[in-house]
């Protein structure tokens, strides 16, 4: 499933990140790499998705969250 489809408090791990090098560089240097476990903290309509990953609360806009594939644990 896509990160954007996850519900609050769901825990899982990142399975794939898709995008150009620029996007990939930004997203992976903040810690969103394949295999990382995460927790969706908040996912409201029209708002960025809040996830907790590598001890950090991260906000991702919806278009970016669309490009991240995850699996629930």
């Amino acid at each position: 499933m896509k990160l954007i489809e996850t519900k609050s408090d769901m825990r899982g791990s990142i399975t794939a990140v898709n995008g150009d090098d620029h996007f990939m560089n930004r997203i992976t240097s903040i810690g969103i790499t394949e295999g990382t476990t995460f927790q969706t903290v908040r996912n409201d309509k029209k708002m960025p998705v809040l996830i907790y990953l590598r001890e950090t609360l991260i906000s991702l806009n919806r278009a970016d969250a669309e490009r991240i594939e995850v699996t629930s644990k």
Binding site: H22, R26, I27, I30, I32, P48, L50, T56, L57, I58, S59, L60, N61, A63, D64
Partner: peptide, 13 residues
């Protein structure tokens, strides 16, 4: 467009 940042950011405690 290429340098727009802020879409991915951390919320520090």
């Amino acid at each position: 467009q290429a340098t727009r940042s802020g879409m991915i950011m951390e919320l520090p405690p």
